[in-house]
Design a protein around this nucleic acid. Structure first.
Lengths: 115, 115
DNA sequence: ATCCATGTTGACGAATAATTCAACGTCGGT
DNA sequence: ACCGACGTTGAATTATTCGTCAACATGGAT
């Protein structure tokens, strides 16, 4: 039941490359890839996951989450913006309908004063 | 600028206990407390922070966040509930008014079907 | 001056996570 | 049968986090 490993293997195969090729592109040892795919070993550190995601052309974040890790971007957000923890504290108790409302709000593109 | 260390020291002093006493109560070495307070050393692991919070009677989560760590409860939430990452992805771009609306929704106690 | 309670510092060690190395098993082509 | 490309496995290594131990510095109370 190695979520991450299975996904990795499937993505790699979609790209028709071998473990050795992927490993070379990513800059890690190919035996490590093998163990990760088989679930023998935990997913690698975030920076490696990101490089894998780039090579395999998927959203790094998606892969990081599959690895059951919290992306560094989230980490920063959580520890720096106090509203976020406020939200997370309640998030587990939100009803589907409340989630809907929140998604509505997220949809609305407001003045992008980001960056 | 050791946020966590300063907070810890101030909390400890409020309780009028020494580093050694706190360390004993928490179950770690007192020299470690010293280094943490002075910022020489990073904050301890989450379980230690929790015990510290209990001894000093503050919300563990508050202390964990000050330590710039993501509480395990959040970690689980993020990696298990796919709506949460969806939210976090957009969270940094939310305007104050959008935050207000979200807080409104959080306020509303709906059927607590949690646990 | 002495004592001792408190805090500080530097070197060291344990535990765990992350990763590599060397060697081997397998299979499809030739 | 043999070869080369591929994947697997176990032991060994490195990196990082997390903490302890021994020794020292300081300041007040007696």
């Amino acid at each position: 039941m190695s979520e991450f490993g299975e996904l990795l293997r499937s993505l790699r195969k979609q790209h028709k490359i071998t473990q050795r090729q992927l490993a070379a592109l990513v800059g890690i040892d190919f035996t490590y890839i093998s163990k990760i795919e088989s679930g023998t070993m935990d997913p690698p550190a975030e920076d490696k996951i990101i490089r894998i995601a780039e090579v395999l052309q998927v959203e790094p974040e998606q892969l990081i989450l599959k690895a059951k890790k919290v992306p560094a971007t989230f980490h920063k957000l959580i520890t720096e913006n106090s509203d976020v923890p406020l939200f997370l504290r309640k998030a587990s108790k939100l009803s589907p309908s409340q989630w809907e409302e929140i998604k509505e709000i997220l949809q609305r593109e407001e003045e992008g004063d980001a960056e």
